[in-house]
């Protein structure tokens, strides 16, 4: 039973990683940039929900909606102010700017909410589900996290495959110049991608903090890095890849914590990533590109 409960918590953690990784991978696919500030958007989302639910005493569902709205706005604003001027600059310059944005968000949160850990009140107040005669208990947060992840994944794939905007996204990620020539509004599409990615980050932030209940200005950096790892693991730029990568990473992390060493769990996760990349240099579902002279 302990193996099963460990597996379930792994899937739950993996679902959170998957939601964040989806945002990472979409932004990478379209803007070709590593958005290091993505992890801090998670933190902003969690703090927004915290303010609404714990400080103002509003219902949790409103907290989630506000978190999503704040992050969407933030994502678009950051893209407009910091990343858009750098379109066409070297990818390293964009990377450093993203790091600057990450520092900025962390320190703003530090000024407003201080470095002391806040107790995050879970947005899910349902009893745990008891299975197998009470031996296996699955918390409601876990179930909601996994369900949310599946819903998000479903919506995102249908959006990209069935709508015009989604097809425009695919076109921009395939070839930006050609997409412009076909009359696609490239800047608008990139902004939309940032909006969706940030909204997903907000949802992930609320779920992450509901599961682990503490909140600090630095909360986003580790899940951000892990989700980035998950996105690379699955093949960066690929949406199903981010999903699979996230789930696998979550399961490996929880199993390693339980059966090998809790302190070495992160090292094991990263070691698995390295091994996968050495065997398949572009991730599990990544496209193999041939280099031409």
């Amino acid at each position: 039973m302990s193996f099963l409960s460990c597996l379930i918590s792994g899937i739950s953690l993996g679902s959170i990683y998957a939601i964040i990784a989806l945002g990472y991978t979409m932004v990478y696919g379209i803007a070709k940039m590593l958005n290091f500030a993505h992890g801090d958007i998670i933190m902003v989302g969690a703090f927004a929900a915290y303010t609404i639910v714990s400080t103002l005493g509003m219902p949790p569902i409103l907290g989630v909606i506000v978190a999503v709205a704040v992050c969407t706005l933030l994502g678009v604003t950051v893209e407009r102010i910091a990343y858009k001027p750098l379109r066409g600059a070297s990818s390293l310059a964009v990377l450093i700017t993203a790091i600057g944005v990450s520092y900025l968000l962390q320190n703003l949160a530090l000024l407003i909410f201080s470095a002391n850990p806040q107790k995050f009140q879970s947005v899910v107040n349902l009893p745990a589900l008891k299975l197998a005669g009470g031996e296996l208990s699955v918390s409601a947060v876990t179930i909601i996290t996994v369900v949310t992840c599946l819903v998000v994944m479903f919506c995102l794939t249908s959006f990209i495959n069935k709508t015009k905007k989604g097809q425009a996204m695919l076109a921009v990620s395939e070839d930006r110049g050609a997409a412009t020539l076909m009359g696609i509004n490239v800047n608008g599409t990139i902004a939309l991608t940032f909006a969706i990615g940030s909204a997903l980050a907000a949802i992930a932030g609320v779920l992450y903090c509901s599961a682990y209940d503490t909140l600090t200005p630095y909360i986003g950096s580790m899940p951000g890095i892990k989700a980035f790892t998950a996105a690379v693991f699955g093949g960066i730029g690929s949406i199903p890849g981010a999903f699979i990568g996230g789930i696998i990473l979550g399961i490996i992390e929880q199993l390693a914590k339980k059966y090998i060493s809790s302190q070495l769990a992160d090292a094991i996760v990263f070691a698995v990533l390295i091994i996968v990349l050495l065997v398949r240099p572009s991730g599990i579902l990544g496209k193999k590109t041939n280099e031409k002279v």
């Binding site: 910091a82 001027p85 600059a89 450093i96 700017t97 944005v101 900025l104 320190n107």
Partner: peptide
Amino acid sequence: MLIYAIVLIIMMIANSAPS
């Protein structure tokens, strides 16, 4: 650190933005 972050972003944009 807030000022540091802002300086960093502005310097990157001033140095690398094509415009």
